[in-house]
Design a protein around this nucleic acid. Structure first.
Length: 317
DNA sequence: GAGATTTGACCGGA
DNA sequence: TCCGGTCAAATCTC
């Protein structure tokens, strides 16, 4: 059965699954700051939510690491959104007067002619590179640094779209870009659509989680940890979720027997990357407790929803 | 003064 | 021709 994991037929599904898990990881990570915003929560609720989120992020990262480890061909940094931070400023931070002044001073005459672009624009390579979309209410920093390089009013939208590229584009040749578009819906908090293009090739794939103040590196972990991750994200009594009982199209159970051995760990900077040290204290999430917290405080609905999504993502494993 | 942001122009695809 | 994405000069911030 482990062989099935390595079969090319499963590659697409695996890629999809990895992307899905990574997306949930990203969303949880991005929405963590919500806990800091809602000060009216009791400290115990905050602690609970914090704990749950930290556990979920750790578990997800472990699972992602194992999944990536088992890919048939090495595809470094193809994981979509285990990345990226969005720094969206309030509309036009520049003061109106400054803007007006600059216009009055510089506007009248034409700008100098610009250099002609090279024949192939960077963006035109997108067909062969990755692109994915995320929706978030808190487009905060998430570990990568971005530089804004443009802003456009897009037809049919009420808000301008901001364009960002990796700060290290020049230094490291990182081609990661993204654009942020606030949705028209009058939801509170506002929802932003973040579209990512290309993966980060900078920073050696390190992921910095500012909220938890730890660094995660793509770890090399024993597959048993992934099983723990799976267990941690499920009601341990819900046997219907066991992969062996999934429909035929679902992915096989492979974490216990990966194609390639993954035993050595070169990472040291975080608990998640330190496999051995984490095994003993790997969390077991109490979903009932989480649901209760969600009921007790409306703000937890989002978090609960994210974690439920997370669990769903693991059903196929 | 260096680096980041703003913003109109430019470019290519549909 | 329109539109989305990018460029790059001008401007701002530290």
């Amino acid at each position: 059965m482990a062989a099935a994991w390595c079969m090319p037929a499963a590659a697409d599904e695996r890629e999809r699954a990895v992307a899905e898990v990574a997306q949930v990881y990203e969303r949880i990570k991005i929405q963590q700051p919500l806990l800091q915003v809602h000060h009216h929560y009791s400290s115990s609720h905050q602690q609970l939510a914090q704990s749950l989120l930290s556990d979920a992020l750790r578990a997800l990262n472990v699972a992602l690491s194992v999944m990536k480890q088992q890919r048939p061909s090495p595809a470094p940094a193809t994981t979509p959104p285990v990345t990226s931070s969005v720094v969206v400023k309030a509309e036009s931070p520049r003061s109106p007067s400054a803007s007006a002044d600059s216009e009055a001073i510089a506007a009248p005459t034409e700008r100098r002619p610009k250099k002609r672009r090279s024949s192939v624009m960077e963006g035109n390579n997108k067909t062969s590179s990755s692109s994915w979309v995320d929706f978030t209410t808190v487009p905060y920093e998430d570990g990568y640094e971005w530089r804004k390089y443009g802003e456009k009013k897009i037809n049919g939208t009420s808000y301008t779209r901001s364009y960002f590229r990796c700060t290290y584009k020049d230094d490291a040749g990182c081609l990661a870009t993204k654009h942020v578009q606030q949705k028209d819906s009058s939801s509170d908090p506002p929802v932003f659509q973040v579209t990512y293009n290309n993966k980060h090739t900078c920073n050696n794939g390190k992921l910095i989680l500012p909220f938890m103040n730890i660094k995660l590196e793509p770890p090399v972990l024993p597959p048993t940890l992934a099983v723990q991750a799976y267990s941690a994200l499920h009601d341990p009594f819900d046997q219907t979720m066991l992969p062996s009982q999934q429909e035929p199209s679902s992915l096989p159970v492979t974490m216990q027997q990966p194609c390639g051995a993954a035993t050595s760990s070169t990472t040291t900077s975080s608990c998640i990357s330190g496999a051995e040290s984490c095994c003993d204290e790997f969390p077991v999430l109490d979903m009932a407790q989480m649901a209760a917290a969600a009921e007790a405080s409306p703000g937890y609905d989002l978090l609960y929803e994210e974690l439920s999504l997370l669990c769903d993502s693991f059903k196929f494993y």
